[in-house]
């Protein structure tokens, strides 16, 4: 059997449309998920017991179930529960954002935990108010320290976004599978689709390593 990868080029427009959808869904979910994750992360470290308990249950649940189950749940159940129509895209973004919130909450919480208690002592000695301490000392450091893990969360989310194809959203994976079925040339098409994901995700994971080293060096005391 001979393989002809060049023929995939004929479908580049369709693949590009799919890729755009993949990137769009990923970026939207990352943006919403990070904000949601910061709130959850704060709640998880909060002194209010009920806030801590709720956040913990939420985070453990979303980290303990397959993303595809979450996606199906949102896709089939949320419209029934809320009584509103959700487009494929909206439910995809909602599901991925909820998931991203759970994983990024852990990054924020871990980052907050690595700030040494000495810093709190210094803030007291300098007479900083609790607000000034959180706003100018804790928060900037938490965000800086969380960046490497957040970025690797983003890579995970980008990969997980391929699941929206299973609920019929026309992302890169969906388009790729359609072309593969239509042309009966899965080897070429699926390999190229996998390579496209790889080409985007790989540099990002390298970036994580570089950033990790930089942040650790810059924040060493």
């Amino acid at each position: 059997m001979d393989y002809n990868f060049a023929f995939v080029l004929r479908y580049q427009d369709a693949l590009l449309v799919g890729l755009k959808m993949t990137v769009l869904v990923s970026l939207a979910s990352i943006a919403i998920g990070c904000l949601w994750g910061f709130v959850l992360g704060m709640a998880r470290g909060s002194s209010l017991r009920w806030a801590r308990a709720l956040a913990t249950v939420y985070i453990e649940f979303f980290r303990g179930t397959p993303v595809i189950v979450q996606l199906f749940w949102v896709f089939f159940c949320l419209p029934l529960l809320l009584g509103i129509e959700l487009s494929n895209m909206a439910s995809g973004i909602v599901a991925l954002s909820l998931y991203m919130g759970a994983i990024s909450a852990e990054s924020f919480r871990a980052a907050l935990k690595t700030i040494s208690p000495d810093q709190h002592n210094a803030c007291v000695a300098l007479g900083l108010s609790r607000y000034a301490e959180i706003r100018y000392v804790l928060m900037p450091q938490a965000i800086l320290r969380a960046i490497p893990t957040l970025l690797s969360n983003c890579v995970s989310l980008f990969k997980e976004s391929a699941l929206v194809s299973a609920v019929g959203m026309a992302d890169l994976m969906f388009v790729g599978q359609n072309i593969s079925n239509a042309t009966a040339r899965p080897v070429e098409v699926l390999t190229v689709v996998a390579l496209i994901y790889f080409v985007i995700a790989f540099p990002l994971t390298r970036g994580v390593t570089v950033l990790e080293r930089k942040v650790l060096k810059g924040l060493a005391v």
């Binding site: 040494s116 810093q119 210094a122 007479g127 900083l128 108010s129 000392v137 810059g218 924040l219 005391v221």
Partner: peptide, 23 residues
């Protein structure tokens, strides 16, 4: 303190003026 406790995300000047300006 023994361990300096400078704020690592701020420059030296920013470390010095944080408390006077913010509190």
């Amino acid at each position: 303190f023994q361990n300096y406790t400078l704020f690592p995300h701020l420059t030296i000047v920013e470390n010095l003026i944080l408390a006077p300006c913010k509190s």
